[in-house]
């Protein structure tokens, strides 16, 4: 509609302030990417330890170590993005509970506590039963930690592109994609064929579902709102088009293809390439989706 309006009115902004630059940039991309790995590997560990307990017992310590490292990368980038990072403690002392940021901070803190408990159980006490018990609660906490960013994006009322049901699905799928990819790289050839097949299926299905959601938004989003149409121009011939497609190919299309080939050829090598591609591509696709709504003038 605005397009026709502009043609008819020939309306041109002739004097205005410059637009603000990107507010949430690559630091927030790092935040989302690292969090997907940190929670995703917990989802996968929970599944594998329930379904294949005999063949996957060795993952207990590396999984908790990887999750701790990536959750701390997530926390590090969260804090350094604050313009007043030394006031971070305000979230705990002046919490505003309508904010997804507050909920996320509290949940992430609980999640880190549980991870440290699991590390203590397996590393210090060598108690697998305790570890598995703690994992049951940790996996529950991993859900809101994964989802809170979707809530935050939904609360970003200015950014019409980010809609709540879609973003929450994308966050869970990103965690499954990153978690399975990391698990594939972690397991090496120590996993049995059945475990490898399960991981391949999770990776392939998460990639397929995520790709379908992106494509659905790309095609149908503009039909719902003028603002979404304007934002999506940046990936439909605009300045982020190439980066968008690099992300889609690396995160979803290539892993899907390689997963199919690896299942057919029983090749774990192809699966590892799919895992690396998915992890790199996830960063790129998250980054594009984060940045493009910020390019639009709001007023």
């Amino acid at each position: 509609m605005a397009h026709e309006m502009i043609a008819a009115s020939n309306a041109i902004v002739t004097l205005d302030v410059a637009l603000p630059g990107i507010v949430w940039g690559w630091i927030i991309t790092m935040n989302m990417w690292a969090k997907s790995i940190g929670t995703g590997i917990i989802f996968l560990a929970f599944y594998l330890l329930k379904k294949h307990p005999e063949q996957t017992g060795f993952i207990r310590f590396p999984v908790v170590a990887i999750s701790i490292v990536f959750i701390h990368i997530f926390l590090f980038f969260t804090v350094i993005d604050l313009h007043q990072m030394f006031r971070f403690w305000h979230i705990f002392f002046y919490p505003h509970l309508t904010s997804a940021i507050t909920i996320g901070a509290w949940m992430a803190t609980g999640f880190v506590g549980m991870l440290l408990g699991m590390a203590y159980a397996i590393y210090m006490k060598k108690d697998e039963a305790l570890y598995d018990k703690l994992l049951n609660y940790t996996v529950l906490l991993a859900v809101p930690v994964t989802l809170y960013t979707a809530g935050l994006m939904a609360q970003s009322t200015a950014r019409e592109l980010w809609q709540m049901p879609t973003e929450s699905a994308q966050m869970i799928l990103a965690a499954l994609l990153a978690g399975s990819a990391m698990m594939i790289l972690l397991g090496g050839n120590k996993f049995s064929d059945a475990v490898k097949k399960d991981l391949a299926i999770v990776l392939g299905l998460a990639a397929a579902a995520s790709f379908i959601l992106y494509m659905a938004e790309l095609i149908f989003g503009p039909m719902k709102a003028e603002e979404v149409a304007a934002v999506l121009h940046y990936v439909k011939g605009g300045e982020y088009t190439i980066m968008f497609w690099i992300g889609q190919v690396m995160a979803f299309l290539l892993p899907m293809t390689l997963v199919c080939l690896s299942l057919k050829n029983q090749s774990y090598y192809l699966l590892k390439i799919a895992a690396v591609s998915a992890l790199v591509g996830l960063w790129v696709s998250k980054h594009v989706w984060l940045v493009i709504p910020q390019l639009l003038p709001m007023s």
């Binding site: 603000p20 507010v23 993005d81 990072m85 305000h90 970003s156 009322t157 200015a158």
Partner: peptide
Amino acid sequence: IGCAGCVMACPYG
């Protein structure tokens, strides 16, 4: 705390 959540949320910039 300068999280810029409000900058992202305000539809009017």
